[in-house]
Design a protein around this nucleic acid. Structure first.
Lengths: 347, 347
DNA sequence: AATGGAAACTGTAACGTTACAGTTTTTGAG
DNA sequence: CTCAAAAACTGTAACGTTACAGTTTCCATT
C-alpha cells in the first residue's frame, strides 16, 4: 500500500511485476532495446535477443496491457455481443467456448457485451466502437438488412457475424447451411414415406429464416409433396407457445405427417404435442430436427437429427475477426458449415 | 494513419475521441481541474463542476480505460473463470447473463477466462492474479478444499465463488440451498406415497454433493423411508451414461419408486430410462428435479420441479465481487438462495 | 494595513509501452 | 588509412490519466 522508498533506478520493481525497465536493468541494456529484442526486431543482435528473452522468461515478464494499449491503441480484446433476453439458448455457451478455444492461443481476451431487447441493438455496437473497448466484434442474430453491419463497415471496425446478411456488403461471416439442412430434412422424411410436411422455422426477421424456408420449399418442390404452413411459431419463442401452436397444427383436418424443427428445444415441444395427441413417433409421424446436444435424441431415439456444431461456429468466428483485424479481405473470411446429413434413428 | 500535423495545443483531439485535454482547452481550465471536476472532488467550485460536466457531456467524453488502468492499476474488469469442457451446461449462459445484468450499470467489463479440464484449474486463476488482468474473479464448481480459494485469499485478490467450501476461510459466495432442495424433494415424494427413493447427485468432488446428499439422507431419516443408492452416476456426466445407470437401477429386484434429480438434464435421462422400461410417470414412479428452464416440465407435466434461478446467482456473484473489491468484509457477502418449494404437477 | 488561512485552481511527474530520431561501433571498400 | 555505410544500440517523447505538491485569489480577522 504505502510504498515509502522510492527506488530511483527501479531495479527489480520493488514487489510489483517486472517491467521492461526491470529487464533493462538486469541486462544492462536500454529499455528500447529490450522492447525490440522481445519482439524479435531486425536491428537487434542475435546474441542480445537470446539473452533478453532468457531473462524475460526467468523473471516471468508479461507485457503490461494498459501500457501497450495506451501507447499503440490496440486493446487485444474481442467483444462478443449478446442478447441477454434469450431464453433457453443453451447453445450460446457453446459459441462462447468455441471463441475462447480459438483465442486461448492468442493474446486476445474475450469480453462480453450484453444488451437487452428493450434497448436498441445498436447501443452495444456503438459503445464498443466509440470507446474503442475492443479491436473487433462478433455479432449474432443477423438480420437481412442488419444496421449493425452497415455501421461497423462504415466505421471500418473489424467484425464477424454469425449468419449472413443481404446488405450487399462483403463482410466476414460464418453460417450453418440451413438451406441444405431443410432440403436434407425433407428428403429424409419423404424417404420414410411422409408426404405432408411442416416446418418450424426461425423468427422471420433473422436472415436464416429465408435460408431454411427456401430450402424447405425447394425440397418440397423437388420431392413433389405437400407443405403445410406452421403458423405463428418460431424456434426461438418459449417452448410452451411452440407446443400450443403444434397442437393446433395437429388438430387440423389434414395434419402433417412429417415435421422439420429448426432447433433441438423446438423438437421437444413438437414431441410433447405429438404424444399428448396420442400419436406415435416413427409410426404416425416423423420429426427431423437440428440439434447441438444429444438430449432429444437420447430421449426419443426415433427422432431424426442433423447436428449443428456451435463450438465450431465460435472458432470460425474468432478466426474471422482476428484475420479481419489483421487486415484480411472480407471475402476470404466467409465460411459455411455444411450439415453432415440426417442421422438415422438409433436402434 | 499518418497524422502529419502536430496540433501542439491539441484542441479537439484531431479526429480522435475527446480527452481531458480537449475539455481543458474548451473550458480554459487545467487538465487536473477537469479530472477532479468530473469526479466531483471537494476542492472544485460548484459552478466549475457544472460547466465541466456539461462540456464533457456535449463532446461525449469517456475516460480512456488504458489511461486510468495504467495510472491507477484498476482494470475495471471482472473475470468469470469457466471450465469449457462442460457438456450440456446450458445454465452457464444464465449465470453469464446474470453477471452481465449486474455489471451493466457499473463501469465494469466482463471478461471470460476459460480453462480445460486437461489443464490445472489453478492456471487461469494464477494468470489473472499474476498479470492483474482483472480486479476480481468469479469461480464456479467449488470443491470442499478448493485450492483456488486458498490461493486467492492468500494473495488478497477479490473473488466470489458459486458454491461454498469447507476450507474454514470466510470468503464471498453465493449458493443454492441444495440441502433444503433434497429434503423438500423427499417430503414431496413421500407425500405422493413413495417409500423407496434414490438420488441422482452431483459429482462427489464438488462441495454441493455433500449438501444434497446430506439433505436427502436427512429427509429419508425424517420420513422413515428407504434410500436406494444410485451408483456411478452424477448429474454432470453425459446423459447417455446417466440413462444407462438409471436403467440398471430400475432393473434391481427392489427398484426405487421415487427419484430425485439434481439437474434438469438428468431428469430427461431418468424419464427416458423409466419409459423405456415400460413404467409410467405419476403412476408407477415419481421424479422431483431441479430445473432452470421449463423444458422437462413442459414435456412431462407429471414431473415435480424445484426451480433454481441461475440469473439470480450471476447477479449475486457479481454483486459480491464488486463489494469485495470495494473492501467489504467476506462474511457480509455470503448469500444462500432458498428453494421456493416443490411445484405441483401441471394439470 | 497586515496576515492567516480557506477555497479554487494548476503544473509536474509517473504508470509501461513503443515510434522516432539519433548515436556509437564495426565492417569493408577504395 | 580513410570514410561511407551497415549493424547494434539508446534517449526522448508521447499515449491519457491521476497523485502530489504547489500557487494564486480572496476574504475575515486582528
Amino acid at each position: 500500500m504505502n510504498d515509502q522508498r522510492r527506488n530511483g533506478q527501479n531495479e527489480v520493481a520493488a514487489g510489483g511485476r517486472p517491467t521492461l525497465k526491470t529487464i533493462a536493468f538486469m541486462t544492462g541494456l536500454g529499455v528500447t532495446t529490450v522492447s525490440r529484442a522481445l519482439k524479435d526486431a531486425p536491428d537487434i543482435g542475435e546474441e542480445t535477443k537470446k539473452r533478453v528473452q532468457l531473462v524475460a522468461r526467468q523473471v516471468g515478464y508479461r507485457p503490461n496491457r494498459a501500457g501497450v494499449r495506451l501507447r499503440t491503441g490496440k486493446t487485444n480484446v474481442i467483444s462478443l455481443v449478446l442478447n441477454t433476453d434469450e431464453q433457453l439458448m443453451g447453445f450460446i455457451s457453446d459459441i462462447i467456448y468455441g471463441v475462447s478455444e480459438e483465442l486461448a492461443s492468442s493474446s486476445y481476451h474475450l469480453i462480453l457485451t450484453p444488451y437487452s431487447s428493450r434497448n436498441d441493438p445498436m447501443d452495444p455496437i456503438r459503445y464498443v466502437v466509440e470507446t474503442h473497448s475492443a479491436d473487433g466484434i462478433i455479432i449474432s442474430q443477423t438480420e437481412p438488412n442488419d444496421p449493425r453491419v452497415r455501421y461497423l463497415t462504415e466505421h471500418r471496425f473489424p467484425f464477424a457475424t454469425h449468419g449472413r446478411t443481404q446488405t450487399g456488403i462483403e463482410h466476414p461471416w460464418h453460417d450453418f447451411d440451413n438451406h441444405a439442412f431443410a432440403m436434407q430434412a425433407v428428403r429424409a422424411l419423404v424417404a420414410k414415406g411422409r408426404r405432408r410436411l411442416a416446418l418450424l422455422a426461425p423468427s422471420p426477421k433473422l436472415t436464416y429464416y429465408r435460408h431454411m424456408s427456401d430450402g424447405f420449399a425447394e425440397g418440397v418442390e423437388e420431392q413433389g409433396c405437400a407443405a403445410i404452413p406452421f403458423r405463428d411459431a418460431w424456434v426461438d419463442m418459449p417452448v410452451e407457445q411452440i407446443k400450443a401452436a403444434a397442437t393446433a397444427l395437429l388438430r387440423r383436418s389434414t395434419p402433417p405427417d412429417g415435421l422439420v424443427s429448426g432447433s433441438g428445444a423446438g423438437a421437444f415441444a413438437l414431441v410433447a404435442a405429438i404424444e399428448e395427441r396420442g400419436l406415435q413417433l416413427g409410426r404416425d409421424i416423423d420429426i427431423v430436427t437440428k440439434q447441438s446436444t444429444p438430449l432429444v435424441q437420447m430421449f426419443r431415439p426415433q427422432i431424426l437429427v442433423v447436428n449443428e456444431d456451435f463450438r465450431l461456429a465460435g472458432r470460425e468466428l474468432a478466426r474471422a475477426v482476428r484475420a479481419s483485424i489483421d487486415g484480411a479481405v472480407p471475402a476470404s473470411l466467409q465460411t459455411l458449415a455444411v450439415p453432415d446429413g440426417v442421422e438415422a434413428p438409433r436402434p
